[in-house]
Design a protein around this nucleic acid. Structure first.
Length: 732
RNA sequence: GGGAGCGUGCCGGAAUUGGUAGACGGACUCGACUCAAAAUCGAGCGCCUUCGGGCAUGUGGGUUCGAGUCCCACCGCUCCCA
């Protein structure tokens, strides 16, 4: 528990963790502009795991690169040094006070021309001189009303004020002024920075504004001094004006100056993280109560194990006014201290919602256990999760917290793995069609748009902007899957969603495409219905592997398969191959559905020319391949084809209990293939050639072709590239 | 400003990882069926063309027999961090 400046959501009347405040300084839940407040709150020490959380990211090979990058940025490890600047009195003598700054550029210390404190820094009040007090107070007041974003954004002016005191640069003994400025934050590092205008852009802007000296101490290697017109020189280089470090490359100077500081007692190497401890206190009713009791004599006492869990009261009144309802329910919070028995007070803060979601997946391994959340045996046998699916919005909230919990539980010996999720799929969002009147700025509901091909404002008649955007009530662009399910059924809805876009991309919801998917399913029904009319049936295992194998054996002795049969078998086994690959590994459901469409198209043209066993193989395969995508229709078709008789009580004969079709690679082989003839890399035509022709044969065929005669004009090519089964490239 | 990713027909999107760009679907056009419409079926559908072909995957270069795919620079968009 610690006192800290926290993010306060004025709408929800609760505090928030840093991860829950977006880049505009707004609450992830309410959207309110977050305020800063000083409160005593509970934290989890996630910073103790900062190194591990960062260093283990490369292990997560099944995660999207960008999620790993986002986490790395969020943790934000920077290596540098803490350097101490003694505060001097009016006569220039060192006092007992000193300012410690954090910097990633100890190599630039000889260029420090001032030191800046955050306005909230505890030493500000004590060090401010009398003549500066009024300015300092006014400035601090101004800054307290600014958001973190306003204070630190690059394009915002940097403001500050000198507080009157001076410090001594420990590297060269120079006396430099002490300032406070809005761009220095109390929470980051030590809340103090050294100002090196020549080599830091913010310091440069600040120094120019307040006419502070700019002294260059690093120059580009092998070049003259850098002139300060554009701004600070922030790249690596060679040191100058740095005493005994002159001539040293800046990369080496970082270590050398840090070592000197350590030896002489004015600094030390330091690794700094952007990650802060996780603030978990919430002033809400809904949440798991933080299980501690506050006793005047014993202090903070954990609720004894036998009294856990602490349950929320049911007789609570929701006033809707500020603060937690629990704090207003004395009958709930008044308890006796478990240590001394004196009257004490139960903690009324509850835990952040992300606490529970950080380990819920572990509970799935042992859901009926009433004594423990899970046993080690159960959790180790089921976890880590093979494939996790979630939105990109969890990239640094839930997915970082869950990793942290897993590592803590591992260190407590409660489980044996380092990372909770092996593969991560960040699925896209459904976006609805959105109409906006750009003159009035108003959004128009699709139902009010009379003609979607020429959308106009029903009131003003203005032409409307049309685009797809994340669904939002205020934009009237929500889509209700229930409407589609009612009209077309769940199978159509599923097929549409899977086909329209790859899973990690946003999906533009378009009613016309839903209609198209519905047509495809109807086409499948007619295809199977037609087959049934012609007497085809899957009863007694017709069309399964063994039967087909026998048919093929017989066919070979009696002249082989006809053209329809060959084409159909190739289509069937291509579909098996492609759909199996699409479902395995990277989930490419959109191309899997398109393969189903191709198979259905091939069946429409070839089914009637095939013998019954091969037609049945195609029908059986189609329906089984369809089953994961359109489970209801697939079962109906299976029933219709008498794969399962209606009276058959055995559920195991359902299409969903059938073995996945096996690929017969021989079916993919063609007798002849189309050989593309290129001349100088350009396609000039193609030849029908035997599939098993060797390189020499292909070259000869290509050279003898009309295409070669026409384009080579009788000359022999200087080079011939042959890619068997694909192409021949003739280079004149 | 730093980082990550992306850029392909009218649209959503494919492309065995360097080998016929535009699969599959939507939209659109034409035809068949129909009194008519819907549905269904068939055909067409990147651009230009003197009908030989030429040009096309954001732009400009490069590597290669061959580049949507690899390399360099630039432009634009999205997200994350400032």
């Amino acid at each position: 528990m610690a006192s800290a400046t926290v993010n306060w959501d004025p709408i929800d009347q609760t505090v928030l963790a840093n991860e829950q405040v977006d880049s505009e300084g707004r609450s992830w839940r309410s959207g309110a502009l977050v305020e800063k407040r000083k409160l005593r709150q509970w934290f989890l020490k996630i910073t103790a795991y900062a190194d591990q959380l960062l260093d283990d990211l490369p292990k997560l090979e099944g995660w999207p690169e960008r999620v790993r990058t986002m986490q790395a940025n969020w943790i934000g490890r920077s290596t540098g040094a803490e350097l101490t600047f003694p505060v001097v009195d009016a006569d220039g003598h060192d006092t007992a006070e000193s300012i410690t700054v954090f910097t990633t550029r100890p190599d630039t210390i000889f260029g420090a021309s001032y030191v800046v404190l955050a306005p909230e820094h505890p030493l500000v009040a004590r060090l401010t001189t009398a003549d500066q007090a009024i300015h300092v107070e006014a400035f601090c007041d101004l800054v307290s009303r600014q958001s973190e974003l306003e204070r630190t954004a690059d394009d915002k002016p940097k403001r500050g004020v000198a507080i009157g005191a001076q410090v001594r640069n420990p590297a060269n003994g120079e006396l430099i002024p002490l300032w406070i400025a809005d761009y220095v934050l109390a929470e980051y590092g030590t809340g103090a920075v050294m100002g090196v205008p020549a080599h830091d852009q913010r310091d440069f802007v600040f120094a120019r504004q307040y006419e502070l000296p700019v002294r260059q101490v690093i120059i580009p290697e092998g070049s003259d001094e850098h002139a300060y017109e554009g701004g600070a020189w922030t790249e690596a280089g060679v040191l100058i004006h740095s005493g005994r470090f002159d001539g040293l490359p800046s990369v080496e100077a970082k270590t050398a100056i840090t070592a000197a500081a350590e030896a002489e007692g004015w600094g030390q190497g330091k690794v700094q993280f952007r990650l802060r401890d996780w603030l978990i206190s919430r002033q809400r009713y809904w949440g798991c109560p933080i299980p501690v009791i506050h006793c005047d004599s014993c202090g903070v006492v954990p609720v004894p194990v036998e009294q856990l869990p602490v349950e929320l009261p049911r007789d609570v009144a929701f006033s809707g006014k500020g603060g937690s309802p629990l704090a207003q329910l004395e009958s709930w919070w008044r308890v006796d201290c478990p240590c001394c028995g004196q009257p004490a007070r139960r903690e009324t803060d509850t835990m952040d919602t992300f606490m529970c979601s950080s380990w819920y997946f572990l509970r799935y391994s042992d859901p009926h256990n009433t004594a423990l959340p899970f046993t080690r045996e159960a959790v180790d046998s089921w976890l880590p999760v093979d494939q996790y699916v979630g939105g990109i919005e969890h990239a640094i909230l839930h997915l970082l917290y869950s990793r942290f919990f897993t590592k803590v539980l591992r260190d407590r010996g409660l489980l044996s793995f380092d990372e909770p999720f092996q593969h991560l799929l960040t699925q896209g969002m459904v976006q609805g069609i959105t109409y906006k009147n750009s003159h009035t700025g108003k959004y128009i509901a699709p139902a009010d748009v009379a003609d979607p091909s020429d959308p106009r404002d029903p009131v003003t008649g203005d032409p409307l902007e049309t685009f797809y955007e994340k669904m939002s009530k205020s934009k009237y662009n929500g889509v209700d899957p229930a409407v589609v399910i009612d009209k077309y059924g769940a199978d159509t809805a599923r097929m549409f969603i899977l086909f329209k876009a790859p899973p990690e991309k946003d999906l533009e919801w378009d009613d016309a495409d839903v209609e198209g998917q519905f047509r495809f399913l109807q086409r499948l029904w007619r295809l199977v219905d037609g087959a049934c009319q012609r007497g085809l049936s899957l009863a007694d295992g017709a069309g399964d592997q063994a039967v087909v194998k026998q048919t093929l054996a017989t066919a070979i002795s009696s002249g082989g398969l006809n053209a329809d049969e060959q084409d159909l078998r190739r289509a069937v086994h291509t579909a098996i191959k492609e759909i199996s690959a699409d479902l395995d590994g990277d989930y490419q459901f959109n191309t899997a559905v398109s393969e189903l469409m191709k198979l259905s198209n091939a069946m429409a043209s070839h089914l009637e020319g095939c013998s019954a066993p091969l037609a049945c193989e195609a029908l059986r395969t189609l329906v089984i391949l369809l089953a994961p995508f359109a489970p209801h229709l697939a079962e109906e078709l299976w029933l219709k084809l008498a794969g399962r008789s209606e009276q058959d009580p055995l559920v195991c004969r359902s299409v969903h209990c059938q073995a996945w079709p096996l690929l017969d690679a021989a079916a993919l082989v063609r007798d002849t293939v189309e050989l593309v003839i290129q001349v100088k890399g350009k396609v000039r035509g193609s030849l029908e050639v035997p599939a098993d022709a060797d390189k020499t044969t292909l070259e000869q065929l290509a050279l003898a072709s009309d295409i070669a005669a026409k384009w080579l004009e009788g000359k022999a090519p200087s080079r011939v590239i042959v890619v068997p089964g694909k192409l021949v490239n003739l280079v004149p």
